[in-house]
Amino acid sequence: MPNEVLIIIVVVVAILLLIAIWFIATMNSLRQNEVKVNEAESGIDVALTKRFDTLSKMVDTVKGYTKHEAKTFENVVKWRKGMPDDLTLEQKQEFMQKLNQVQADINVAVERYPDLKAEKVFTNLQKTIADVEEHLQASRRLFNANVSRLNQKIVSFPTSIVAAKIGMGKKPFFEAELEKRADVKMEF
């Protein structure tokens, strides 16, 4: 009789131990995936900052030609301090959207003032911005790929149990085109 009890205890302990090991392994895997998502997000930050810097330089060049239209670029002047720290993902998307607008304005200016195309500094900046764009897209895609992988794990059973226990929820994607969101206000 005591032998049987001992066997049951050993089996129960072994099962609990296996569950604990699985729980820890799954939790670590989720955490590692989360770290990858965060790393990818910092990649977006770097690319956004570089895009902001390059666009600022382009604006400086363009402004010489478009003094009477300075209003178009006044938004950028407000952002002299660069990309604010501790932005949420949604705010970063909003920031990117604003940079898109600046870039569109620059393109319009280039169309109006063809002499700009002859400026060596400006053409070099155009090349740089094209490369920065590529890096930003790559960062965004890498981020979304990592988020997708993490989200798939979070919603899959039985990993979903561990995710719920450690309070990990689905992460949002970084969208290329942001819909107008009235609730987000950006102050630079």
Binding site: G43, E134, H135, Q137, A138, S139, R141, L142, A145
Partner: peptide
């Protein structure tokens, strides 16, 4: 580096 893969493989 994963970023390079996404950068080249558009």
């Amino acid at each position: 580096d994963a970023h390079t893969a996404f950068y080249v493989l558009t």
